[in-house]
Amino acid sequence: MNNKGFSLVEIMTTFMLVSIILIMLIELLLSLKSIYKEGDLKTTLLINQANIEKQIYDDVFNNPSLSLVSCGENCINITTKSGVKSLQVTDGNVTYDNYSMKIASGSSVGELTFNSYDQTVGTDTITIFEIDLPITNKLIDGDYGIHIVAQKGNLLY
């Protein structure tokens, strides 16, 4: 009798085992790829946010002459210690003075808005300034835009 070859049970068992391992490997690869892409995108968005917010905060934080004025759609003129600088959104870029940040591909940019309101504290008036520019991406949760809060008032200095 010819005893070469495999029995049906052996083939089926082996095929099942190999299939399970292959499916697990493919799922692992796909999830690793997705994790890598998300991580890369999140890091890029956070670095962009950090860079431009630092630029703006260096000017608006602890600035006794701070004021915000609109200079058109998606444009704000910020009075700093060294003059007036513009924050604006144009054609996929966010620019602040000489610094320009390219918006990561696939991201959606909201409307650039600002607000200021006076609050009485004792006999002094303190003004709170807010600048908001939402930036979101369909691949990851969260808002990676610009959200600046600054205060101006004699009691704070």
Partner: peptide, 22 residues
């Protein structure tokens, strides 16, 4: 990635200014 981001630190510094000043 959620710890001590630039935005969160500056916001905390804003709070620090208020607490220290007033």
């Amino acid at each position: 990635l959620r710890y001590n981001t630039v935005e969160s630190i500056y916001k905390a510094l804003n709070l620090d200014r208020y607490l220290t000043g007033i």
